[in-house]
Every structure is written in structure tokens, then in C-alpha cells.
């Protein structure tokens, strides 16, 4: 078994593209679900409209890169407002139902035959990331260091994506930290506990929920940009419901309503997935696990990681950073 490769890919995944893009999406979910109590099950749609907004603007309409980013951000805001107007006046569960349906509608439009000229059907769009890599300050080559015998190297393109991605995460965490310490964040947390009480104290609950939905959606859509730029393409099925469920897993793993919870949660989630995959596939290839084929390794890693998460919820329901006292309080 090649332990050096396993350790190398595992360590790289702790800061890798998946960690960054799911981290950003999870920060958004943390604002919705962790702080405001909004059950947004359509985070993938926010990532999707951002990725496709950028892709279509640049690749189909031949407009500049920055305009594509603006279109993507605008699309995320618009989606939040469209989802929010009918549902935020209703009970929390309606938002969950509507967002999960809306996310599927968005995905199916992207992969529909009727709009193949615009969105490219199930193949998606590519060739829109040149504007981003043109800004890359790193000359061509591999960058990194050897951790003892373990090499940790990224090529110049990946390094540029990761640098921008982690800067975005830092900025978003800073914004969340400042907001949640402020009276604005206090209103959000109070809405999570009991809307009617907040109304009776003279706060416009609808407006705050809308602000929360827009903010979390915009931060989540940054994850869509990172995906599109890192892989230089977007496909509709990347933005399916399981993407949203991974985000929820990450938020709960890290600890809901904690500033760094989603970031650490994302790191642990991807490190676990990559590590289990590496170990299993090497073990199968070496013949240590005779009853499994290499094709089965992919699904089995999700089973094992899922099992780990169930155990985590049983023994540490507040997540890594959560406060046990908060969980002990029966809400309502």
C-alpha cells in the first residue's frame, strides 16, 4: 500500500477546492439555518445560478469576466428575493419545501433540451475561466513543500483558485463574526427562537429573514463561482440536492451557529472522505479486502463516513464547536 500518496492526497484535501467551495456554501447555510432558523434546502440552486451566471455571460455572450461575476451575484440575490417573498411569511417548513423544489427546477432548466443553446444541456458550459486565470500572479509550475517524506504540491492554477477561495472564506467569516456580535445578529438569533416574540418587540421579522436569506445565498453562491473556476466548467448535476445535504452535514458537523463551524466541518468532511477512499482503494488493489471491487469503494466511503456522522450526532450532538448547554435547552 502506498501510504505516502494516501497521506499526501488527504492532507491536500484539507485545504482543497472541495473544502473551499463546500465551506463557502456551508457558511451560507449556517447563516440561514444556524443563526436564523431558516430551513433553506436549496443552497445548491444559489451555487448553480452563480456558476451559470458567470458561465453564460462569459462563454455564450462573450462579455468580460467581472461582468459575469456581477451577473452571478445578481442572480443569487434575485433568487433569494423570489424564494423569500412567498415563503417567509409562512411557517418554517414551507420554506424547506419550496426551496428544495426551486433548486430542482433551477437544475432541470439548466439541463433542459429547450435551453441547450444557452446552458448547454447536461454537458454544461466550459471555457469561461480564462479571465480569472489571466489574473493569476503565480508563474507556471508546482508550488509546495515536502512534509518529511510526504510531498504537498499544487500547480499554479490550483494555487490561485485556493488563494482566492481561502481569502473569500476569511472575508465571509469576518463578516459573519461582526454581524453575529451586533444587534442585527441578535435579532436573527431571536427570530430562530421565536418569531412572534420578536414581532411583539417591534422588529420587522420579514425584513430580517429576507436579509438573512439574501446574505446566506450570496455567500453560498461564491461556492458556485469557485467550482466553475476551479474545474473550468459547470454541469447541472453538480448542483443537485445532495450538494445541499452535504452543506447541512458540514454545518452540523462543525457546530451550527458557530463562526468557524462550517469551515472546520468542511475540512473534516473532505479529509474523512478522501482518507477513507484512499485507504479502501489501496487495500482493495492490494487484495486485502477480497469481497470488494474497486468500483464499490466510492459508495462504501459514503456509507462509512455517514456512519461516523451518526455516531458524532449521538455522542456529540452540538458538533465540534457547539455549546453543550445550548443543546440541553429544549427549544420552545
Amino acid at each position: 500500500m502506498d501510504w505516502i500518496t494516501i497521506i499526501s492526497t488527504t492532507l491536500k484535501s484539507a485545504v482543497g477546492v472541495e473544502t473551499v467551495l463546500y465551506g463557502l456554501a456551508a457558511i451560507g447555510i449556517n447563516i440561514h439555518f444556524g443563526y436564523t432558523g431558516l430551513l433553506n434546502f436549496g443552497q445548491a440552486a444559489f451555487m448553480g445560478v452563480a456558476g451559470y451566471g458567470l458561465a453564460v455571460t462569459v462563454a455564450v455572450m462573450n462579455l468580460p469576466f467581472w461582468l459575469g461575476i456581477l451577473v452571478g451575484l445578481g442572480a443569487a440575490v434575485l433568487l433569494a428575493v423570489l424564494l423569500g417573498i412567498p415563503t417567509l411569511q409562512l411557517r418554517a417548513d414551507y420554506l424547506a419545501i419550496v426551496t428544495i423544489a426551486a433548486a430542482e427546477i433551477v437544475r432541470l432548466i439548466f439541463r433542459s433540451v429547450a435551453f441547450k443553446d444557452v446552458f448547454g444541456g447536461s454537458d454544461g458550459q466550459r471555457g469561461f475561466s480564462d479571465g480569472f486565470y489571466a489574473l493569476n500572479p503565480f508563474p507556471e509550475g508546482d508550488y509546495g513543500f515536502n512534509l518529511g517524506p510526504v510531498p504537498i504540491f499544487f500547480n499554479h492554477r490550483l494555487l490561485w483558485v485556493l488563494l482566492v477561495g481561502w481569502l473569500l472564506i476569511a472575508v465571509c467569516c469576518g463578516i459573519v463574526y461582526l454581524l453575529m456580535k451586533s444587534p442585527w445578529g441578535r435579532v436573527l438569533k431571536a427570530i430562530r427562537e421565536d418569531e412572534d416574540a420578536v414581532r411583539s418587540l417591534g422588529k420587522n421579522v420579514f425584513s430580517y429573514k429576507m436579509q438573512s436569506l439574501v446574505l446566506g445565498g450570496v455567500i453560498g453562491c461564491l461556492g458556485g463561482f469557485v467550482y466553475g473556476l476551479a474545474f473550468a466548467s459547470v454541469q447541472p448535476d453538480i448542483f443537485g440536492t445532495e450538494t445541499t445535504f452535504y452543506c447541512y452535514t458540514i454545518v452540523i458537523l462543525g457546530g451550527a451557529a458557530r463562526v468557524l463551524g462550517p469551515v472546520i466541518g468542511s475540512m473534516i468532511f473532505w479529509v474523512l472522505l478522501v482518507l477513507v477512499y484512499g485507504v479502501l482503494s489501496e487495500a482493495v488493489a492490494a487484495g486485502y479486502i477480497p469481497f470488494m471491487t474497486s468500483i464499490q469503494v466510492g459508495p462504501v466511503r459514503y456509507i462509512l463516513v455517514g456512519l461516523g456522522l451518526i455516531l458524532l450526532l449521538v455522542f456529540r450532538p452540538q458538533g465540534i464547536f457547539g455549546d453543550k448547554r445550548e443543546i440541553a435547552i429544549d427549544a420552545r
Binding site: 444587534p183 441578535r186 435579532v187 431571536a190 427562537e193 416574540a197 418587540l201 446574505l215 427549544a331
Partner: peptide, 29 residues
Amino acid sequence: TKALSRLTVMENMRLGAQQQKGENFWRAL
């Protein structure tokens, strides 16, 4: 009773105050 369970007693009280500048999104930052 609608005590906001997972807020501290002090945060519950502060929430009641009106015309708070920090309840505006941009100024909160």
C-alpha cells in the same frame, strides 16, 4: 411565555430596545 431560550437573559433584554442603530445591516458591520 416566549422567552428566547438560547439567548442569554441580557440579550433578551437588549432585544427589546427600540431604534437600535446596530440593527441596520450595514451599520452592524
